[in-house]
Amino acid sequence: MANNLCVRFVKAAVGAIDASHFAVTTEAIPSAEMGDIVVQNAFVSLDPYQRRQMMPNVAYANPLNLGDVMVGRAIGQVVESKHADFKVGDWALGHFGWQRYTKIKVSGAEKINLDGFSASTYLGALGSPGVTAWVGLHAIAKAVPTDTVVISAATGAVGSVAAALARSIGCRVVGIAGGPAKCQHAVEKLGYSVCVDYRDPNFKQLLAQATPQGIDVDFENVGGAIFDC
């Protein structure tokens, strides 16, 4: 018989996060009530904001309480519906958490037409990271083909999509990442013209060498000392 596998938050995050911060529980599959759907999740997201919700004494969004199902966006298929807007088999996206099945009011779910894409794409390039990248590059920075665009956290979910979007309109794209392996990945796999290692003691000089014509757009995902350069 099927059951609901849940990942629950059981220890506040101080320092590195490991398996001791979570507990995996086996529970009954929830049943839909009027206005609800039950979604069988296919993919769940792992995002930087989740750490802050696990930290003690940090006012950020809706902090987790010990015992809560781990927060996270997910996409899956409806297996039970008691609302006319969704039928069994529809794909739904929302903050469903780290669990196999989620019962939720339809106001907390978005119906998704996959349009030939993998379902996981709607948590990445067609999800929040992709929208963030598009709005930042086009609506805010208003990048144009002649621009040199510098992207920090170059290999992250937002940075990698921003790089692809910038390249697609003809920009020269320079990445900033931590360590030689990430910088190599940025150039060889993500299409950056060059990537500068912010851990290098000569970082400022290397960034200047990578941008001889200056920087037109700084797509800043980090802030702090890097932004001050």
Rank of each mutant, 00 (worst) to 15 (best):
I176A: 01
K204P: 04
L206S: 05
G175I: 13
A177L: 02
G159P: 05
A164C: 09
V187D: 02
G159I: 08
R167Q: 13
I169G: 05
D216G: 12
C171N: 08
R172D: 14
P180L: 11
V150E: 02
S193R: 09
Y198E: 04
Q209R: 07
V150D: 02
Q209T: 11
A154T: 11
Q205G: 07
L190H: 03
Q213K: 14
Y198I: 06
N221H: 06
A186Q: 03
G178C: 02
V158I: 13
V174N: 05
A153K: 00
Y192A: 05
R199Y: 10
I169C: 05
P180Q: 10
K189D: 09
A186Y: 03
V161F: 00
S160N: 07
V173S: 05
A162C: 11
Y192N: 01
V187P: 01
V161Q: 01
T148R: 03
F219W: 09
H185A: 12
N202F: 11
I151K: 06
T155I: 15
D200F: 10
N221C: 08
R172S: 15
G223V: 11
S193A: 15
D200H: 15
I215D: 08
F203L: 13
L165V: 11
A166S: 15
I215W: 06
V194Y: 03
I151D: 04
S152Y: 06
H185I: 11
P201G: 12
N202H: 14
G214L: 12
G214F: 14
E220C: 10
A163H: 01
N202W: 05
G178N: 04
G156D: 09
C183S: 07
E188T: 15
Q184V: 14
V196P: 00
D200K: 10
I176D: 00
S193C: 13
P180N: 12
A166Y: 04
G159L: 08
V217I: 13
Q205Y: 14
T148M: 04
D218H: 10
I215C: 08
I176W: 01
L165K: 07
K204W: 07
G191P: 04
R199W: 06
S152W: 05
I176F: 03
V158D: 02
R167S: 14
D216L: 07
R167G: 13
K189S: 12
D200C: 15
A154I: 10
A154D: 03
S152C: 13
F219C: 05
A181T: 13
A157H: 04
V196E: 01
V174T: 11
F203D: 09
